[in-house]
Design a protein around this nucleic acid. Structure first.
Length: 214
DNA sequence: ATCGGGATCTTCT
DNA sequence: GAAGATCCCGATC
């Protein structure tokens, strides 16, 4: 469940191919579950950063907790792109948070990526912010910082088009995916009883209070 | 391990 | 003008 990659089985980065849009479930809740255990990859000048997605939240079209609930604004425009685009916003004036748009063009919905288990680029991240490995991307703000995701990535198409490999993309699972748990979402006040948060059970890189992670 | 307060600033009411 | 999809640190159990 929570097995760090041993040195002898280092990740082969060349196997991380971008998922196509057709491979992403067209339903927001299904996509939220699907993304658990898949890989988020960012090719940067400092090298390739990558992590297993271990915690997500769904924000639906008819959902008062969603940024898109009251229609398009300057901030949330990327939530209205067809599924597979990055929606990056600044939380509490400071922290970038990374989402994947999840519906058809014109409908506002997204999956918030809340936590990763880092599998590549840990040295780069640790040089910037010393921390236990499991803490590097535990929480949406830390995730974006660790992966060097900024507002400049807002609106990027994460899916491959032709042979082009996007700088930021989603890839398949690099090992077996553990059991997936569900809970209420974290840090919201509206629609606070809906079970729209998903996580890999037993993974210590998952954020939030322990009582939600069973 | 869990809880609570302060920082910080953009967005929308 | 208030609230907010958070983080960090210190206090306490």
């Amino acid at each position: 469940m929570d097995q760090p990659l041993a040195p002898h089985c280092a990740l082969d980065l060349s196997e991380l191919r971008p998922l196509s849009r057709a491979e992403l479930p067209a339903d927001t809740v299904e996509l939220s579950r699907f993304l658990i255990g898949r890989t988020l990859v960012h090719r940067t000048a400092q090298g390739t950063l990558a992590g297993r997605i271990v915690e997500t939240e769904a924000y639906l079209p008819d959902d008062a907790a969603s940024h898109a609930f009251r229609g398009p604004t300057k901030r949330n425009g990327s939530m209205f792109l067809r599924r597979g685009h990055a929606y990056v916003y600044i939380s509490y004036g400071v922290w970038p948070c990374m989402n994947v748009s999840s519906d058809e063009a014109g409908t506002g919905a997204a999956v918030l990526l809340r936590a990763l288990e880092i599998v590549s680029g840990a040295e780069t991240m640790l040089a910037e912010k010393p921390a236990p490995l499991r803490d590097l991307a535990r929480g949406p703000g830390r995730l974006a910082r660790a992966m060097r995701i900024t507002l400049g990535d807002d609106g990027l198409d994460l899916c491959a088009t032709g042979d082009a490999v996007p700088p930021l993309f989603l890839a398949g699972a690099i090992r077996q995916i553990g059991e997936i748990g569900a809970s209420v979402r974290i840090g919201i006040t509206k629609e606070a009883d809906r079970l729209l948060r998903f996580f890999e059970r037993g993974n210590s890189a998952v954020s939030g209070p322990g009582r939600l992670n069973r």
